[in-house]
Amino acid sequence: MAADLPDYYFRIRDNGAVVFKLDTENRQRRWDMEEIAVVNVKNGSIKPHGDRALSPAETALITSWIAERREVLASRDIDDILRTVDHLNLTTQWAQTRASEEQLDLVANHLLLAMHDLRTVLVRKRSENLRRQMEAGAEQTKEA
């Protein structure tokens, strides 16, 4: 079983992880976990634990983990948004076919405000992107 364990363990926490080095080759044959660093995925910071100095191999491993973790979190964000679209469609169907007047009264204002806020942000962001694309196209035309 000990041969199946990785050399390092990343305990996920908000915005990152605590990194442990695993030791299974000790006299008691227990799994010892030595905390070696704290990682922040958002800003990429790696803070060694205590007075410990990370080896270049450990730093490379942690940096690689940060990149992989960012990819996982980004794919989860997109999946969450697509699930939200599904929930909006299911909510629309519920409102149209099964919701009572009392139920609609409970949720209508909350939904309308949230959807209005989302629509405002989406329209603004799309408009900004279109403007940037048009400006970039104009610059390319001038250069040609």
Rank of each mutant, 00 (worst) to 15 (best):
E143S: 07
V123C: 05
R76E: 15
H116Q: 15
A37C: 11
W31D: 02
D86R: 04
L118I: 05
E135D: 08
N40S: 15
L118P: 00
I12E: 14
A37E: 05
R13D: 02
A95Q: 05
E58G: 03
D32P: 00
D51C: 05
Y9Q: 09
K21Q: 11
E101I: 11
R83S: 07
R13H: 06
T92E: 10
E128A: 14
L5W: 05
T84S: 14
D117V: 04
Q140T: 09
H87I: 11
I46V: 15
V41H: 08
V38A: 07
Q140V: 04
W94D: 01
E58S: 04
H49K: 08
E34C: 01
E25P: 00
I78G: 00
E128M: 11
A57N: 07
S75E: 13
R131S: 06
N43F: 06
Q103N: 06
R126G: 03
G16N: 01
A74P: 02
E139G: 01
D7R: 13
N15F: 07
E71T: 15
V18F: 08
L112M: 10
D79S: 09
R76L: 11
T84M: 14
K42I: 10
I46N: 02
E35V: 04
I81D: 04
L104R: 06
D32G: 02
L22I: 12
P56L: 04
L82Y: 08
V38E: 09
G50P: 01
